[in-house]
Design a protein around this nucleic acid. Structure first.
Lengths: 200, 200
DNA sequence: GTCTATAACACGATAGAC
DNA sequence: GTCTATCGTGTTATAGAC
């Protein structure tokens, strides 16, 4: 049963290792040992470590996107925002895509960095849509800029991982995202009772 | 003139390299070549790469703290918040302390991670103080939790670096911090004119 | 404290048989 | 496609003279 061919097995293994240890610190040897695929096979499918990394990275990016599309789904915008923000995440493992930005060998290689940039652009777009919807639904003040806020919310998650890893405790990650959610709620427009006197 | 002894020169060089390239990806050879210090001297002062890294890390942490003490300084709390948040930073270089959390060899070594954890705890404390002061000064709603918000604000900066590096553009970093500042301002308590009818 | 020489091992890949 | 063997280089030191 070669349902799981070497090629796919290599990509999956490299994806895991890149999440756990990054690119630079993952050796072809590590991939061979965890996957059980031999040297010859490995270099047959992927001539260089970098080629394998590109495939693995593409896969990690793809893993992220289904959740993002939920941001732009049906239902109350503020509820979607909360659902995405509070979605269960392993704070101590970090983001499999965001992690790549800290690896000098990725950061300095446009080919490796490109999928990361594209992924983040897509996530940003998802955030912008739901934040615009929230403004339109009267759940967020109209003087808040959705484009900017989208970056803020992405940064809270990405930075939350950094705090959690530093303390080896998921607490700061949860505090950071809960905090920004409170802030969003506190930044709701004045209620109808308040607005009537403004003529709105 | 041995004003700058080998030992100090090594620490300074290692500090720079750890900011630029992290720990794992910086070799003793790199340090020797940039500093001009010879092999013998290097291993005389620091028996292992890890020993040098500890000294360099301690130094990088120390570099960060003066700015933090400004958070807890004199003046209007909201002004201090803005000043710290908006302080000039090289978004594409990232945080010399936060960066370490993404290096597997640091993350898995309690001795190397400890200075990072301590630094973040101190920064958090600085944020908590100024946020409490802002609440006390009536600049922030009393139902916002300063402990949580402190994590949120730290995360915005740490995550902002990730976004900026991903896009190779400081824009997202600035958007993220400007966005959270807008959010803080939008989360000010109702004005006196609004409050009178609520009986507060 | 600093020098040069050397060592043991891992990394990233290549060669050529099957 | 997969196997084993090999290669050149870099890493992280250690040894021992000065």
């Amino acid at each position: 049963m070669t349902v799981m061919e070497s090629r796919q097995l290599l990509i999956e293994t490299m994806s895991e290792l890149m999440w756990e240890r990054g690119y630079a610190d993952t050796s072809p040897r590590d991939v061979r040992e965890r996957s059980g695929v031999g040297q010859g096979s490995m270099y047959h499918h992927f001539p260089t470590k970098r080629d394998l990394a590109v495939a693995a990275l593409e896969r990690n990016v793809a893993d992220l996107l289904p959740a993002v599309s939920e941001l732009d789904g049906p239902g109350d915008p503020m509820a979607r925002i909360e659902a995405y923000l509070m979605r269960p995440r392993d704070a101590l493992k970090g983001c499999k895509v965001g992690r790549m930005t800290q690896d000098p060998q990725v950061r300095e290689d446009p080919v490796l960095l490109a999928p990361v940039a594209r992924a983040f652009a897509q996530v940003h777009l998802g955030w912008v849509k739901v934040l615009r919807a929230a403004v339109a639904a009267g759940e967020l003040r109209t003087d808040l800029d959705p484009e900017r806020l989208a970056h803020t919310l992405m940064a809270v998650l990405q930075g939350g991982y950094v705090l959690a890893i530093a303390q080896q405790d998921p607490g700061p990650f949860d505090a950071a995202r809960t905090g920004v959610l409170e802030l969003l709620r506190a930044a709701a427009p004045a209620t109808t009772d308040d607005r009537h006197k403004m003529g709105e």
